[in-house]
């Protein structure tokens, strides 16, 4: 096996990033951001409502997909538990604590379960487009035209079903092609939730102008903590509290921060886990200067200062 000498050439070895999507900057080095009413931490809860089709054959592996032989009732119904039971436990906790949520939803699920869309609209919460369904992750080898049709269809459908503008985009399993940001921006998306590289919103360049990436913290996703890393419920609570304490402390000297908590109802909405979520959210909500907001509201407050 030989290696081409091209392997030792580095055409992007210069100041900043190795791509043109965003500029390089360090969090501590930026102007302080001020949230409405002088809030210190914007609390952004993202509830994810997803459909894992029984016959899904994703082009790339999808965690929590149909891992068992067809028909995989085990995984199908366990994911669907979230949309029937878990989500209502979560909404009840959020309602009790007066916490708002952005709700990321697969457009195919919105079509299947319009009841869920109505629940979001009744609370005046925001919907984020989460692709078609979990069997259709976007990926780097996807044909651009095919992806453009997919994006257009997802957003058209979700906007019609909900009556909402739909400003945010979360790719299924956060997987993008090189074209995804351009294609969603062309359809009027104003912010992405896929990139896990910051604690604040930042400008993101696309072929249809500048949009933003929101700090949708990958490490605080319940599926990541409780399923992938197999932490205990108490460790989940500790992690959310520790995250909040750090951001809250930083906000005293560095300006407003965003704390994003990503929820999968089939994970945190289990009967034995919901109290853990309530404990963590109650702790956060008990602090002065916590502003519960949707992604769009946080983005508006952020861009108003630019």
């Amino acid at each position: 096996m030989t290696l081409s000498d091209d392997y030792l050439k580095y055409s992007k070895r210069g100041h900043g990033m190795d791509h043109g999507r965003y500029t390089w900057s360090q969090l501590h080095d930026r102007p302080a951001v001020v949230w409405p009413n002088g809030a210190r931490v914007a609390l952004w809860v993202v509830t994810q409502l997803q459909w894992f089709p029984l016959d899904m054959k994703p082009a790339i592996p999808v965690p929590a997909g149909m891992a068992r032989p067809y028909p995989d009732y085990w995984n199908y119904t366990l994911r669907d538990y979230g949309n029937r039971i878990g989500v209502f436990r979560i909404f009840k906790v959020l309602d009790k604590l007066g916490i708002r949520s952005s709700v990321a939803i697969n457009s195919a699920l919105a079509a299947r379960y319009p009841y869920l869309v109505a629940q979001v609209n009744a609370r005046d919460w925001e919907l984020i487009a989460n692709g078609l369904d979990m069997g259709h992750p976007h990926h780097g080898e996807m044909d651009r035209d095919e992806e453009a049709v997919l994006v257009k269809g997802v957003l058209k459908s979700l906007r019609e079903l909900s009556g909402q503008k739909v400003r945010g985009w979360l790719s299924p399993i956060r997987s993008e092609s090189m074209n995804t940001p351009d294609l969603v921006a062309a359809e009027g998306i104003e912010y992405l939730c896929d990139w896990a590289n910051d604690d604040m919103p930042y400008a993101f360049e696309t072929g249809s102008g500048t949009i933003h990436n929101m700090p949708h913290a990958m490490e605080l996703d319940d599926q990541q903590i409780l399923i992938s890393l197999r932490h205990t419920e108490q460790e989940y609570v500790d992690q959310l509290k520790d995250q909040f304490d750090c951001l809250y402390a930083e906000s005293a000297s560095q300006g407003g921060r965003v704390m994003a908590i990503s929820l999968n109802p089939w994970v945190t909405g289990q009967a034995y886990r919901i109290k853990a979520l309530e404990k963590a959210l109650s702790y956060i909500a008990s602090h002065d200067g916590v502003w519960s907001a949707t992604g769009g509201e946080i983005l508006d407050a952020f861009t108003a200062q630019k």
Partner: peptide, 22 residues
């Protein structure tokens, strides 16, 4: 994943943008 593998790439970029200074 086929490039771009957004989550692991951006997770590592977090270190330079935010984590390093802490």
């Amino acid at each position: 994943k086929p490039h771009p593998d957004v989550v692991p790439y951006s997770h590592r970029d977090y270190g330079n943008r935010a984590g390093f200074w802490r």
